[in-house]
């Protein structure tokens, strides 16, 4: 029999338990339903009392946030609607035909849409493919994959670790590009009215503009970009791990000198960085640093690892020796 004190329950409800205390609470919970009732009912009372005084402020804030999310979605629809009205009509006809055909072919399959708004989301698909969805992105996929191929759609940015299955190709369709793979790791950026790109980390992928059959095959370390202005694809060498740094929040570098490390940061943040002459240009570093959304925070972290400091001067960063 595990026994826990009432003070410990109070601490649990207060969120001030240590790791060990938390484990003790868990073990105690497992013992009887009565324990669960004691803990969770008390916690519920605390939740209700704790939110009583500010209830109207909480309600107002959350309502405003929901409203903002709806507003964003409406704007997005309008923009899309205005630009692609004709395409929309064509698509609608296609959808009607497809639905007609699908209804006869197989039972209705529900589509699941995952929205990552304020934070990244990790999504596991029915075939156990793992997708990291970046902020402000939407991923849609069927509840169960069709028998021939695994098809999903993306609006935003996502990193895919596709489960290997050569019999069922995995297809990601974005605004302008479509990516077909069998099992691989890649990063896909696809936003309305912006150039799209795909960076490959492992395996092989075929990338083609939506509705056109003129794809390019990528090898690891390459990135293909699609220009919405010219409608053309271009392939460049890239540090694909860096393109995908946001998903695991790790910026890896191997035998890199300060110049190369700065190149990586420029690729990530698109902010000019200048290395002052006092910094040893030859010394190399291997390891990793943490990726933050703001360059400031990343640099602060980096300065703990390598003996430099940074300052900001009219829009660009200066790295100097410590």
């Amino acid at each position: 029999m595990v026994e826990i004190s009432e003070e410990l329950i109070a601490r649990f409800i207060n969120n001030s338990c240590t790791d060990d205390e938390l484990l003790a609470v868990k073990q105690w919970l497992d013992e009887s339903a009565g324990n669960a009732a004691q803990l969770f009912e008390t916690e519920y009372v605390s939740d209700m009392v704790g939110t009583m005084r500010h209830a109207s402020a909480i309600r107002k804030n959350i309502s405003a946030k929901i409203e903002r999310r709806m507003e964003l979605e409406r704007k997005k629809r309008q923009r899309r609607g205005a630009v692609r009205w004709i395409a929309g009509v064509a698509a609608m006809i296609a959808v009607v035909v497809t639905i007609g055909v699908t209804l006869f072919m197989r039972p209705d399959v529900k589509t699941i849409s995952v929205y990552a708004l304020s934070s990244c989301e990790k999504v596991v698909l029915p075939d156990s493919t793992v997708v990291y969805l970046n902020r402000n992105s939407v991923l849609s996929y069927p509840e169960t994959f069709a028998s021939r191929s695994r098809e999903v759609t993306l609006d935003g940015e996502a990193f895919f670790e596709v489960k290997k299955d050569s019999e069922h190709p995995f297809v990601v369709t974005g605004q302008y590009l479509s990516v077909e793979v069998t099992g691989t790791k890649f990063d896909f950026v696809s936003r309305d009215h912006e150039d799209s790109s795909v960076s490959l980390l492992e395996g092989g992928v075929e990338v083609s503009p939506v509705n056109r059959n003129e794809g390019v095959l990528l090898v690891p370390g390459q990135r293909v970009s699609y220009s919405i202005e010219s409608g053309k694809l271009s392939v460049t060498e890239t540090n694909a791990a860096i393109d995908a740094a946001w998903h695991d929040r790790i910026i890896p570098f191997e035998n890199a000198n300060i110049g190369q490390i700065c190149d990586i940061l420029v690729q990530l943040y698109d902010t000019p960085i200048e290395v002052s002459p006092g910094v040893d240009p030859v010394k190399t570093y291997s390891g990793a640093t943490v990726y933050y959304e703001k360059l400031d925070s990343t640099l602060k972290h980096l300065c703990h690892t390598i003996p430099v400091e940074f300052s900001e001067r009219d829009g660009h960063i200066v790295i100097s020796p410590k």
Partner: peptide
């Protein structure tokens, strides 16, 4: 903590 628990 004991008082808080008692109240709850």
């Amino acid at each position: 903590e004991a008082h808080i628990y008692k109240a709850l």
